[in-house]
C-alpha cells in the first residue's frame, strides 16, 4: 500500500515521499514524511483502495495547490524541497508537450479509445494514442525522455539537450501548430492586441507591458511580409527535391519531419507557409514558461 500511494504521490508532486519508488529496502531512501506515507496508505485502504479517490485526496490538498514561489528562508532550510514547501517545477513529459501544443492551437482531437497510430504532424489525437514500439521507439518520444518500453520504469528522467531545442526550432509540427494559432489571433485589430490574445491562449494569462514590447519589436524587425499579405496567397507547394535521401526504412519521419529526411511514401501535405507571426508564436511555445509546470 505504501508503495502504490508513494508512486501516485510522486506522479503528482515530482518527488516521492520515498524517492526510490522501487526500493523501500535498506538501500533505498528513508521516507521524508513517514507520517504522511502512513496516512495515505491507511486512507487508501479505508477508501476501498480506490485510486481515483487517492488522486482526488492528493489533488485537493493544500500542498498540491502550492505554486512554485521562492522563499529564501525555506530554500536555505530545504533546498531540494523534500518537505514540499512549494510546488516542484518540472518540464512537461513528451506526451504533455505534444498534447499541450495541439491543445493551445485548438487542434487537439480529444476522442477517447481506439487503436494506436504512428505519431505524425497530421495525427491530432492525444499522444497516448501514439504507437509505442518496443523495438524502435518513436524518435520524438525518445527525444523527450520517454522511458525504454522494454523494462519497467520506476520514474522518468528529464534531460535538457540541444536536440530538443532543434525540434522546436526546425520541426514542421511545431511550426504548423504555431501557424494555426497565428491565424486565430490574426482577427485582432492590431499587433498589440494580437500579442495579448496569444498570451492568453498560450499561457492563460495577460502579457506584461515588457513582453508586449519585446513581441512588437520582434515583429516589427522581421523583414518578412506582414501576415495578412501572406494569408492572401495560396499555400506554397513544396518543390520536389530530387537529391533528398529518402528511401531508408527508419529515417525520422513522423513527428520529426522537417528535421530528418523524408520517409519514402510519406505524402507531402500542403503546409501553411512559415510567417513572422507563426515564428513568434513558435517562440512562445518554446519558452520555458510553456515547457515547465510552475
Amino acid at each position: 500500500m505504501r508503495v502504490i500511494v508513494n508512486r501516485v504521490w510522486r506522479s503528482h508532486m515530482g518527488t516521492g515521499i520515498v524517492d526510490t519508488p522501487s526500493n523501500f529496502g535498506v538501500t533505498g531512501e528513508r521516507p521524508t514524511n513517514p507520517e504522511l506515507l502512513e496516512y495515505l496508505a491507511e486512507r487508501f485502504v479505508d477508501e476501498g483502495m480506490s485510486l481515483k479517490k487517492l488522486h482526488r485526496e492528493i489533488m485537493l490538498s493544500a500542498v498540491y495547490q502550492l505554486n512554485d514561489d521562492d522563499s529564501k528562508e525555506n530554500y536555505d532550510k530545504d533546498p531540494a524541497n523534500r518537505f514540499y514547501w512549494r510546488a516542484n517545477r518540472h518540464r512537461l513529459d513528451a506526451e504533455q508537450i505534444r498534447d499541450s501544443i495541439l491543445a493551445v492551437a485548438g487542434s487537439l482531437d480529444r476522442k477517447m479509445g481506439g487503436p494506436s497510430e504512428p505519431l505524425t504532424p497530421d495525427f491530432k489525437r492525444r499522444t497516448v494514442y501514439g504507437k509505442v514500439s518496443r523495438y524502435r521507439l518513436d524518435d520524438y518520444l525518445q527525444l523527450f525522455d520517454f522511458p525504454s518500453p522494454n523494462i519497467s520504469a520506476e520514474k522518468r528522467f528529464t534531460t535538457t539537450v540541444p536536440l530538443q531545442r532543434l525540434f522546436f526550432m526546425n520541426s514542421d509540427f511545431v511550426q504548423q501548430q504555431a501557424e494555426v494559432l497565428a491565424q486565430e489571433v490574426a482577427a485582432e485589430p492590431d499587433n498589440e492586441a494580437r500579442i495579448r490574445k496569444a498570451y492568453r491562449l498560450v499561457f492563460a494569462r495577460e502579457a506584461t507591458p515588457e513582453e508586449v514590447k519585446l513581441g512588437s519589436e520582434y515583429l516589427r524587425a522581421e523583414p518578412m511580409k506582414e501576415y495578412e499579405e501572406q494569408k492572401a496567397k495560396p499555400p506554397k507547394k513544396d518543390e520536389p527535391d530530387a537529391d533528398e535521401p529518402g528511401d531508408s526504412e527508419f529515417t525520422p519521419g513522423g513527428m520529426m519531419s522537417g528535421i530528418g529526411p523524408r520517409v519514402k511514401g510519406e505524402e507531402k501535405k500542403p503546409m501553411l507557409p512559415p510567417t513572422a507571426w507563426g515564428r513568434y508564436i513558435k517562440v512562445l511555445l518554446s519558452s520555458n514558461e510553456f515547457l515547465f509546470v510552475n
Binding site: 532543434l166 526550432m169 526546425n170 514542421d172 519585446l214 522581421e222 528535421i259 530528418g260 517562440v283
Partner: peptide, 21 residues
C-alpha cells in the same frame, strides 16, 4: 545534417527567434 537543419528557415531568422526567446 538535415537532422538539425530545416531549409524552410534561415539561420538569421532563427537567430532572431532565439534572441527573443
Amino acid at each position: 545534417v538535415s537532422y538539425i537543419y530545416n531549409d524552410k528557415f534561415s539561420l538569421e531568422e532563427q537567430r532572431r527567434e532565439l534572441d527573443l526567446l
